[in-house]
Design a protein around this nucleic acid. Structure first.
Length: 569
RNA sequence: CGGUGAGUGGCGCAGCUUGGUAGCGCACCUGGUUUGGGUCCAGGGGGUCGUAGGUUCGAAUCCUAUCUCACCGACCA
């Protein structure tokens, strides 16, 4: 491709709306242009990258035994009513009507359509397992589209759905998809982690997210420094920390005027914050005989809502108790609560339970207890994992300690079980001739999001540094003053022809621009290699080949260039 | 949905307080100049000042309504 016949569309200035690196660079490098909030045009360079990513995903999916199909973006509402998600999905689902006033949706995902398809096309267990996928545009009417391509409303996703006669078969395919995803991210060349995830509202039991590690990520991931363990912070199990010491003090009531927070109390009483506990009152579940449940954490730890609401005694969704209602019962404010003689169930975090001689609220305004102990002073309580993990906690798998990093979710795989197949009555005849509902798995990869994530992870002050696997071009020819020098032009044309014929994706910057302009544009776009041709080196029949990532330059004889570039992979 | 801020040539912005010929930089076009890291000079084209209404002799500027966008929050396969 010649730049003179291409739409390069680079720009010097960064549009004010772009916050994150990938968004800024994609705009400046001429990859995308915004059409409206969360909607983007893909320009030639951007589309080339999208297609590269899609090709790798497609190849690995095929290798893993999945079969490509294509389903419509517009879907009839009936199917969503049938699955129950017409009501459950909320405003993120864009609903439209056709000319006959029939309801349709723009597909944010395709569980309904695929389940309906398989229901009619697959009738026997002999046709299973089956894993179907598509690479296709999705639409989600995000509350707040942001970060450019990272969270747009329209995006390209690879979504696969597998169907099984039993859970064992589902698990086999799930493991195979897990491996295929690892292959994809490794082949693209990104730093990533598979993490144990919450299956969320899509339902199902087992689930992993695949995260590209980058500081601008929206999710927090806890991972072990010495094993493969990684989990979303929301889910990471928090083991007990701190030594369990024997009680050495008797409980004592002290005045703590105006000390309503853990910080204030520990400061006033001059005690370490890890020797305090805090008490949070939440609404109890309906099955419970009480109105409230007290959740007790060590002073420096924070409550994990997801863990809390999974407890039997706790109402789901989790709801903090109304302060007035608590005051009516205990006649004190939130700032003076403690687990001693509360009159409703007390659940203590594992780490809080290890603290002896602790400081806690006395359930009287402006009073706290010091030297309190579980066995002697609280007596009736249970212990559970309630808190968020923090950096330095022991890893739940027993190997190493946890660190926390930011990640960009680029893939998510689920074992759905029979949620959709039951709702939509999707089954086959089994070996005994009886109708059996299918087990399902679903596996998504954000193709366009990977493009943005790759930039987040690979850029410098000059621009994008594409991994070779997904670069829009493998090499660019940058001639110095070609329009003045016949020798330069001849060499450039020759190399362009030879590289093109060798099947190398080569860009030829034949614009009548100054060298600095070309260097800057090509570094911004992030092409992995450039061939600089100038009078200077032609005297020795040589050209310069420069690596975008390392900045290293080497001189090569002209006839060596093509094989050298090919060997770079 | 709540909070904050912004809408002026393709992009980045000034002008608004105190109403009176719509400006600057980048980009674009023409000519020259320069040529291994975003040259320099001269000339040129392009804007219903988000939209609608109002006040006024006169509105980018003041008032009202409305739309759009961004950031923070809530929410989220």
């Amino acid at each position: 491709m010649r730049t003179s016949q291409y739409l390069l569309a680079t720009q010097k200035e960064t549009p004010a709306e772009a916050e994150v690196a990938s968004h800024q660079l994609m705009l400046r490098a001429g990859m995308v242009r915004k059409l409206a909030s969360g909607l983007y045009n893909w320009l030639p360079s951007g589309l080339r990258v999208v297609n590269k990513v899609a090709a790798i995903v497609r190849d690995e999916m095929n290798k893993a035994g999945a079969i490509e199909i294509s389903m419509p973006v517009v879907q009839p509402a009936d199917l969503w009513v049938e699955s129950g998600r017409w009501d459950d999905y909320g405003p993120e689902l864009l609903r439209i009507k056709d000319r006959h006033q029939r309801d349709f949706v723009l597909g944010p995902t395709h569980e309904e359509v695929i389940t309906d398809l398989v229901k009619t096309e697959v009738n026997s267990y002999k046709q299973l397992p089956l894993n179907l996928y598509q690479i296709q545009t999705k639409f989600r009417d995000e509350v707040r589209p942001r970060f450019g391509i990272m969270r747009s409303r329209e995006f390209i996703m690879k979504d696969a759905y597998s169907f099984h006669i039993d859970e064992q078969s589902l698990d086999e395919t799930y493991q195979r998809m897990h491996q295929a995803y690892c292959n994809i991210f490794e082949r693209i060349g990104l730093q990533y982690r598979p993490v144990i995830a919450d299956s969320g509202s899509i339902g199902g039991a087992v689930s992993h997210e695949f995260h590209v590690l980058a500081d601008s990520g929206e999710d927090d991931i806890a991972y072990s420094d010495s094993s493969d363990y990684a989990a979303n912070v929301e889910l990471a199990e928090a083991l007990a920390v701190g030594e369990k010491t024997a009680p050495s003090q008797r409980i004592k009531l002290v005045d703590t005027p105006n000390a309503k927070t853990i910080d204030a109390v520990s400061k006033l009483l001059e005690c370490d914050i890890t020797k305090t506990v805090k008490t949070l009152i939440v609404n109890a579940s309906e099955e419970s005989e009480h109105d409230f449940v007290a959740l007790v954490l060590r002073g420096d730890h924070s409550l994990n809502n997801i863990k809390a609401e999974k407890l039997e005694l706790v109402a789901s969704p989790l709801q903090m108790a109304d302060e007035a209602a608590v005051k009516a019962k205990l006649s004190c404010d939130f700032g003076s609560l403690g687990p001693v003689e509360l009159g409703f169930p007390v659940i203590v975090d594992r780490s809080a339970e290890r603290v002896a001689d602790f400081v806690c609220g006395a359930n009287q305004d402006d009073k706290h207890f010091v030297g309190a102990n579980w066995e002697s002073d609280v007596k009736d309580y249970s212990v559970a994992d309630l808190r968020n993990v923090v950096e330095g906690d022991p890893s739940p798998d027993g190997k190493g300690t946890l660190a926390i990093t930011k990640g960009i979710e680029v893939g998510h795989i689920f074992q759905l079980g029979d949620k959709y197949s039951t709702a939509m009555n999707c089954g086959v005849l089994n070996e005994t001739g009886k109708h059996e509902v299918l087990q399902m798995g679903c596996y998504g990869i954000g193709v366009t999001r990977i493009v943005a994530a790759a930039i987040e992870q690979n850029n410098d002050k000059y621009g994008i540094i594409w991994p070779t696997s997904i670069a829009p071009f493998s090499v660019v020819i940058i001639p110095m003053n070609m329009h003045k020098s016949h020798r330069v032009m001849e060499t450039a044309e020759k190399l362009y022809k030879e590289l093109s014929e060798a099947g190398v994706e080569v860009l030829f910057d034949d614009r009548k621009e100054r060298p600095g302009v070309m260097f800057n544009d090509m570094e911004l776009i992030g092409i992995p290699n450039s061939i600089v041709i100038g009078e200077r080196n032609l005297d020795n029949q040589q050209v310069e080949v420069k690596d975008r990532k390392s900045g290293e330059k080497i001189l090569l004889n002209i006839e060596e260039v093509v094989s050298h570039i090919q060997n770079l992979g």
